[in-house]
Structures are given as structure tokens and as C-alpha cells.
Design a protein around this nucleic acid. Structure first.
Lengths: 352, 352
DNA sequence: ATCGCTCATGTTAGCGGTAACAAAATTGAG
DNA sequence: CTCAATTTTGTTACCGCTAACATGAGCGAT
């Protein structure tokens, strides 16, 4: 491993990376320029003369040079990285948001660090702590409620933060979402308008799921308005997974607990679908015997029979919009709106 | 902004990070030790005396110190990062794999960089190129076929690479998956055993989806064995999304193109579900008039009526196993098997 | 007390880039 | 052709941390 300058110290040289020992200096030597010129050629090709650029590009190819972003990050104080924190990756509706985020950020050269919290606030804090050591240029988080420390860390990070999938008048920085509360009220009003009057709210309520809590509150508030004096019916489970089997279970639970129920408001299409399919098995007619509503407008909602009344959320759009806001902030462009309500849409179908 | 040592040079000081200007030196000063001792306390608390450790921990809290991983990475040549490359994030079955991967890696201090290729080989290569600049300590990739350059970059990176969701006798490094080919043969054999004899293969075939190609080949090979002389029937679309509506479309297309079909083999449960639900609408009896099989054992498969015969893949397990292999390699533990076949399971249900 | 050993901590020199400044080369107006 | 303005390239000093080595403190055996 011959090198130009033999170190005069007796100290052993520091181990370099396993194989890819090609550095910018190697490229610079091959192209006959300084490292700074190579750096410029890579970051802003227009700032280097055409001929030099060509020589450098050729040198990059010949040496198989791959830029080391850690060094770049350290020197320039920009990581070209965004941290995304979501409750669960395998919840397809969040995955769509991340896909939207990623679709916008990748072409701009930003990479996405992804972490999931499993709806546990302490894990979210730990994740934020750990991710902030990576010095991302921006944060994207699903949820608007965080531990005190988590909020502090995010504020101290000095980079844009987008909270999402909810709304709050006092975001850490920016928020892109919709009112889960209002959405649920819309569902209850719809059912009340249709003549249903014994409504039951059913869903999975993980301790850290503030969106589910907001939805429950929306249900309770609307229920109080439309059915004053009537005790609202709520059936929730805390530890079950968000799968169709849970929806079927919840259906059974609701029918056992509140047999007079004529409409069930589920917190998710997944649960609602499981319930509809179980109704079909049991011979319960939907919506004649029992109306069912979902949330999220998953792919299945329109294909089920009866098709599912639900609330459509532009989940991919949340990700894309958030990414655009982050980009604007990261590129020091002005961002006028700190709170962006993307709204929701009640899709009335055959199940109600 | 007073500092101890005023620079004697006239040169303007380099801009530090926006807010978090707290460095290890600040912590060291607060604790009355050297930076190296702080570094040791953070990386290996046992290597520092109890009393010193306490002082350092207190200093960390007081200063709100957040370690800069980029500097750590540069100095130690370990990024504590794994790059994950998947065709699409919002395909729930891949999301489960990533969740499994992440579940195992996060507790070990590794963060996951996520990128998606949209089934485009060129985009995969670009992603690998870009991600390798981040110097991840390992790569996880869904798929076993890559461009020549992508393969080279991965090999030159000098870190463990796990390919997945397929099998190959010559992996870049390691592979965790199953034989899509064998899985499809199993499906065809099952249908043939049940007496179906006019089989049609139907699915979405994106150009870069080698798993779909393998499945088609498995279908064709098994078909040739079980129905020698019979022309195999294949109906595919290239650009449609993997949604239920596409399954319904494909059903119509199959019935128009090959009306004599008595069994359709779909490449995904999503498509098969869309087709089953459309059959219910059309009055086509499943499986009496037409058998239908899926792939993946999605949540819906067991809840549909008729329930869906499908191939179960332990997708979360693929992620977890891959993570364990990567960890073993990254921690220089021995890895004996380079090719791990996690197999698959044919779930015979009511649709066939 | 002396020696050798272990354990804890300090010192030094980078890791591979880029910001800031400096210098050289090129251009254009008069 | 001259000189200032502009463009292109080079030089230097870090960014914040850790590997490698050096040093010192503590301790038991002799």
C-alpha cells in the first residue's frame, strides 16, 4: 500500500474503511486539481470550467469514487437527511405518507431516516433523541403530542419540524394534517341524519395514539349534541393489533355489550371491514340491521359488499406537502402558513 | 458568544450548527475531564470509573448535549446505519419486512435509511449509489437482480449485504428469502390435484419486478409438467397499481380472453381479493365456477368469503432474520449460511 | 520500599470533506 | 496594451469526534 508521504511518526496509521479507501484527494490527484475543485465540481458543476469538470468526472469514474457524506456533513453542517418518525411502518396508511415524503425528498438529494414508535411515547422520545444525533436537516413526525423532553429536543435542534396527521394551534414548528375530531363529528352527524340513534364507538386505543383519542372525543362531542341525555356507547381494546380479526372481535363485543346498537363507528377501515365481513357470516344485514362506518378509505372500502362508508384522508398528500414545506424551510424559502389543514372527505357508501 | 480561546487568526470562524453548538468539549469542560473520557463514557460506560461517569452524565444533562454522529462516523469509520432498499413502501407486505428489520436494528443502536425504487432498476442503482455515500454498515435489499453497476457498488462497499424476497445461489453476500418459482409450482400442483385444468396466470408485471417474473416462470414450468401440450394462459398488465381494482380488471380480462378458464392464479392477494369480490358481484361462484388463488396471505385473505387460498410468506421474519445476519456480520461474528431459505406455506382455503 | 501489573485518564493526530480567504487566470472596456 | 472586474483554482484551517499511544494512579506480591 504505497503512499506518497510516509508518516514520520512511529504511530500506526488509522484504519481506513474496509475497501473503499478512495477519497477526494485521490480524485483530485487523478484529475490534476485540488480537492476543493473536486468538491466544487460535485456540489455545483457550473462553478467549474467545462474542461476541468470533464477531467474530474472522468477521474471519479476511473477511481470509483463515492463521496463520503459524513465528512461533507461535518464540514458543511448539512446532513442532507430528514428524520421521519411514525407509529408503525406496516400500517399501510402511514406507509403511504412516508412514500409521499420520500417521493419528494429523494429527487432533491435528501435521504430519509425512518423510525417507528409502536405508539409508545417513551419510544418516540428515545427515537427523537437518537435521531437528533444524526443531525437531520428536518423532522417529520406523525402525531402532535410528544413528551416534554421530546418537544424540547426538537425545538433545540434548530431545524424545521413537521408534525402531521392531526392539527394543533401551537405546533412545534409546522403542522400538516386534519382534525380527527371534526372528522368524527361529521360521521356521527351523517349517521344521525340517516336516522340511526344508538351509536357505538369501537376501536383500538393504544395509550400513545392521540389520533384515536381525538376521534373518540369527536364522537362523544357530536353524540352529546345530537343525542342529548343519551349515554354514549364506547367499546375499545388497548392491546390488539389493527387487523380485521380485531374488527370481528369488536363487533361481537359491541353486540354483546350494547345489543341495541344500530350503528358502529370504527376508528379504522381495517376494523370496519373485519366487522362487515363478520356480519355477512352472521347474517346480520348491513346497513338494515346495523350500519358500519370506517376511517381512512383504504383500498378495500369501495370493494367490500356492502361498500364501506368512510372518511377519506389524503395520506400520500400529507407526506408530499410536508416534504415541500421541509424543503422550503431547508432552502431558506419563506413559509407563510404554519398550520395546514388538508381536510377530509366523508364518503357515504352502502354500509350506512 | 464568549469563548475561552479567541482565535488569533483574522479568518472568520466557521459557522457552527444553528443552535446546538454544544460539543463534547463543552461536556468535558463541565465535567472536568478530557473529551476522550466523555467519548468513552458514552460508548462504553463500564470503561470509566463510577464517579467520573456520574459527573459526565450530569454534565450531559446540564448542557443538553447531543452527540454528533457524523463526527463519530468520520472518526471511527462506523456509521451505525443500515440502508434498506425496497420496491415500494406502501406495499404492506414489504412494510412488514422493514418493520421486522427495524425492530431488530434499532435496539442495537442502528438507524435505518429507507429508499424505494418503484420497481425501476435504474432508480435502484441511483439509490444504491446515493446511499453508499452515507457509508452504511450494511445493506438490505428486496430483490436479487440488480444492474451490473449496482452490484459492483455493493461489492465494493465492503459491508454486509442481504438480498431478500427471492433466492439465488450466487448472492452478492447473503440472501434471505424463498423460491417464488417453487411457491408457484406448489399452487399449480394444488389446483391440478383438485381437478382444475384450464389455469390462467394473472398479475401485474412491472419491468423490474423479478419476483413476479419468477412466479410466472414457476407457473409456466409447473403447467408444462402437469398439462403437457396445453398452451399456458397468461394475462398481465404492466403499469397498473397493485390495488383491488386491478384485480377486478384482470378478472374481466381473463374471462374475456380465456373464457374456458376454471382457475386463476394471481400474483398477489390484493389482486385475488379484488377478483373474488367482483365474482361475488357478477354471480360467478368461487370456487365452483372458478377457482382463485392469491399470494402473500394478507390480512384479508382469511376473512374474505370465500376465504382465499394463498401462499403465506413470513415477511416480518425475513426482515428480522436479515437484521440478525447483518448484526452478526457487523459485529464480526461468524455467519455460516450465506443462503437462507425461509420457505413458504400453501394455505388451502375455500376459493380453490 | 520496589517492581510489575491493571485500570483509569490524558495527549496527539487524524477521519474526509468544505468555508473562507487568497491568488492566479481570463475577460472586457477604454 | 493596460488595468480593473470577473472567473477559476488553490491554500489553510478547521467541523466534532475517536484510534492509538502515553501516562499516571492504585495495588498486591516480594
Amino acid at each position: 500500500m504505497p503512499r506518497e508521504s510516509v508518516p514520520t511518526k512511529t504511530r500506526a496509521p488509522r484504519r481506513r474503511s474496509a475497501t473503499s479507501a478512495v477519497t477526494m484527494a485521490d480524485v483530485a490527484a487523478a484529475a490534476g486539481v485540488s480537492t476543493q475543485t473536486v468538491s466544487r465540481a460535485l456540489r455545483d458543476p457550473a462553478s467549474v470550467s467545462g474542461e476541468t469538470l470533464q477531467r474530474i468526472e472522468e477521474a471519479v469514474r476511473n477511481t470509483h469514487y463515492v463521496q463520503n457524506f459524513a465528512a461533507s456533513h461535518l464540514a458543511s453542517n448539512r446532513s442532507m437527511t430528514v428524520a421521519a418518525i411514525i407509529p408503525a411502518i406496516s400500517t399501510s396508511i402511514f406507509a403511504e405518507t412516508i412514500q409521499g415524503l420520500s417521493d419528494v425528498l429523494l429527487p432533491e438529494g435528501y435521504q430519509v431516516f425512518l423510525g417507528h414508535t409502536d405508539y409508545v411515547a417513551a419510544r418516540e422520545e428515545a427515537l427523537i433523541r437518537s435521531l437528533s444525533g444524526r443531525r437531520p436537516d428536518g423532522f417529520f413526525i406523525i402525531g402532535t403530542q410528544h413528551t416534554r423532553d421530546a418537544t424540547h429536543i426538537l425545538k433545540r435542534a434548530g431545524v424545521p419540524v413537521v408534525e402531521s396527521w392531526g392539527l394543533t394551534s401551537r405546533p412545534i414548528d409546522l403542522v400538516v394534517g386534519f382534525s380527527n375530531h371534526a372528522a368524527m363529528k361529521t360521521v356521527v352527524n351523517h349517521l344521525a341524519d340517516r336516522g340511526y340513534h344508538r351509536l357505538t364507538f369501537a376501536g383500538v386505543m393504544k395509550p400513545g395514539d392521540d389520533r384515536a383519542k381525538e376521534r373518540r372525543k369527536g364522537f362523544l362531542d357530536a353524540h352529546g349534541e345530537r343525542f342529548p341525555g343519551v349515554e354514549p356507547q364506547v367499546v375499545t381494546v388497548a392491546s390488539n393489533s389493527m387487523i380485521m380479526a380485531t374488527g370481528a372481535e369488536l363487533l361481537d363485543l359491541v353486540r354483546a355489550t350494547y345489543p341495541e346498537t344500530d350503528a358502529i363507528v370504527f376508528t379504522s377501515d381495517v376494523l370496519a371491514s373485519g366487522a362487515v365481513l363478520r356480519c355477512n357470516d352472521l347474517g346480520v344485514r348491513v346497513p338494515a340491521d346495523l350500519a358500519i362506518t370506517g376511517f381512512g378509505n383504504y383500498d378495500i372500502a369501495g370493494h367490500l359488499r356492502p361498500s364501506l362508508t368512510t372518511v377519506a384522508i389524503a395520506s400520500r398528500r400529507i407526506g408530499m406537502l410536508s416534504a415541500e414545506l421541509l424543503l422550503a424551510r431547508m432552502q431558506n424559502k419563506p413559509v407563510t402558513e404554519r398550520v395546514i389543514d388538508i381536510g377530509f372527505e366523508l364518503l357515504v357508501r352502502d354500509s350506512s
